[in-house]
Design a protein around this nucleic acid. Structure first.
Lengths: 139, 139
DNA sequence: AAACACCTTCAAGTGCACTCTAAGGCAAGC
DNA sequence: GCTTGCCTTAGAGTGCACTTGAAGGTGTTT
């Protein structure tokens, strides 16, 4: 049986992007769908995987410009593998730093929530400010 | 000794925001600095703490609009503590979901990096696509 | 007296990634 | 034959959070 292929509307639903966005990504050189005799786009299961990967990259904070560079390197063949690996590594390091920062902020948020709980059930004296309370966690 | 206070330029450096942004935040009702007889803004150590907390909230993904609402509740007094707590709790839950998603994307990214490593040192056969390779981690 | 940091209002510009409209046209299905 | 879904180019609009500029002013320091 021939490989599955989808027109833009169906494909859009499949990958969770709008047709607009798919055409936009194509404009930007990120996707290269096939065309039938009438110029209508056809996407294959390969394209599903590729868009899926794009979404993973975007999901880790990669920008369109970096993505474009990545695609150019990919198109240039195996000689660019080391460079592509380095790009992904950088994205990974950055994303891990983002997570660490986010968790740091979350920790303060958590303390504030606990402080509110203390205020609500009066286990924290009325006079104790959040700033005072926070001092207890300086480590 | 009187409490420390800073003019906008100094304060900006102190908290890592621009003077523009500080005036903008004031416009938006997030900060209420004092003024001297000439109308010049003065920020106190209290303001440092408050801006610090704002930055924690922003750092966890809270939007200016939510922040404004939070500030309004705060100004309304202790009767809004439960509501404020609920807001922070929601922000926390959302941020934790963001982290989980980010980590999921990062995992794929990590696999891709490993796959590149395999390609570079030829421990992965040339014929094995990333998609094939990924199947090994379906659990 | 000039430089500097601050003040005001109001509006426009920036960056990013879409998102949509306009205005025209083709091909398949009911 | 009409609707639906697709095609094109070009450009405008959206949302968010700033960021800057214009154009005038005041007060303090050198």
């Amino acid at each position: 049986m021939a490989e599955q292929h989808y027109r833009i509307g169906e494909f859009a639903k499949l990958v969770g992007l709008s047709s607009y966005t798919l055409r936009y990504y194509e404009d930007q050189g990120l996707i290269r769908p096939q065309r039938d005799g009438n110029g209508v786009r056809y996407y294959t299961t390969q394209d599903i995987r590729w868009v899926g990967f794009i979404l993973h990259l975007k999901g880790t904070g990669m920008r369109l410009n970096e993505l474009k560079r990545y695609v150019r390197l990919r198109a240039a063949g195996d000689s660019t593998i080391a460079e592509r690996r380095a790009m992904l590594q950088q994205v990974k390091v950055d994303a891990e730093a983002d997570i660490a920062e986010l968790q740091m902020h979350l920790q303060v948020l958590g303390h504030k929530i606990d402080w509110y709980d203390g205020k609500i059930d009066h286990s924290i004296p009325d006079a104790e400010s959040f700033h005072d309370y926070l001092q207890k966690f300086q480590d």
